[in-house]
């Protein structure tokens, strides 16, 4: 194995071990799991939607929200704990490049988010499957065909969400490489996630004709600088089959996410290279 890759993997391994020991990770995992499990008992408040859709929306909403919080806060914390505790001094005095260090942090944090998603999605799948079996049994008696959920779609959704959180981690690392304090990185990182969720508004506005060159330039820059995080939210379509998702569309979303991920990691590495430890 390439020496650089090996060093990156060692950093990510220790980062992963550090992250999974954090109470914050355990707290959000328990909170997310509680939200998934409580969706069954709260389904009476389904506002007229299908039961499975309500359960899926509720559970995936928790996974999506707590995953975002974890990606922002945990990534900034993992980065600043190395800087503030001066463990970065020990590590970066070794033949380890700044880019390898940052990549190691990225992969460690991304692996933790992968565990978070797999656990919660697995739990969500179990809840959906159990309720589906009950609905099928009831439908057989009444003769109605119930909505079903797709295990393959659930897997695709986990991958899409993982990629989305990977983009968030890359953005937070780029911000952390520049920021002087943990709080600044968390606040700006959170704003970046909100901006990413609302990016489609700028995209819509950009497509409408305007007389102002400055406004058009602002929208052009915004729509390219900020990734559209909303495009990864395909829970209904993928898991419950509420709309057909073409394979090409999934691949396009995947490439878009990877492009942003690589771009923000590169930016972070360039900023971090000049940082004084």
């Amino acid at each position: 194995m390439n020496a650089s890759l090996r060093r990156t993997l060692w950093i990510s391994r220790v980062t992963f071990l550090e992250a999974v020991r954090q109470r914050f990770f355990a707290f959000l995992l328990v909170l997310g799991a509680a939200m998934v499990l409580s969706s069954v008992s709260l389904r009476v408040f389904d506002f007229g939607h299908g039961e499975l859709k309500f359960i899926a929306d509720f559970g995936f909403g928790g996974m999506f929200f707590f995953g975002s919080v974890l990606a922002v806060v945990m990534t900034a914390q993992l980065f600043f704990s190395e800087i503030d505790n001066k463990t970065a001094l020990t590590l970066l005095a070794k033949p380890l490049s700044r880019a390898e260090f940052l990549l190691g942090k990225f992969f460690g944090a991304w692996a933790v988010l992968g565990v978070f998603l797999v656990v919660l999605a697995g739990l969500q799948g179990l809840v959906l499957w159990a309720r589906e079996q009950e609905l099928i049994a009831m439908a057989e008696q009444s003769g109605k065909i119930p909505a079903t959920f797709s295990v393959l779609g659930l897997g695709q959704l986990v991958l899409m969400q993982w990629l989305r959180l990977g983009v968030v981690i890359a953005i937070v690392l780029a911000i952390s490489a520049l920021a002087r304090t943990f709080l600044f990185a968390v606040v700006v990182g959170s704003l970046a996630v909100v901006a990413g969720q609302l990016q489609w508004i700028a995209q819509d506005a950009f497509l409408r004709p305007t007389d102002s060159q400055a406004y058009a330039a602002f929208l052009w820059v915004s729509t390219r600088l900020i990734p559209n995080l909303q495009q990864f939210n395909l829970a209904d379509a993928l898991v419950l089959g509420s709309a057909a998702v073409e394979e090409g569309a999934l691949i396009a979303v995947g490439f878009s996410g990877l492009a942003y991920l690589v771009a923000y990691l590169t930016l972070g590495a360039l900023i971090f290279r000049r940082r004084e430890i």
Binding site: V14, L17, E18, N85, K86, T87, L89, T90, A93, K94, P95, L96
Partner: peptide, 15 residues
């Protein structure tokens, strides 16, 4: 150069 150098920082902190 760093491969040939060892460093112990002041007040070291490790995981």
């Amino acid at each position: 150069a760093r491969r040939r150098t060892g460093f112990l920082p002041e007040a070291p902190y490790f995981h």
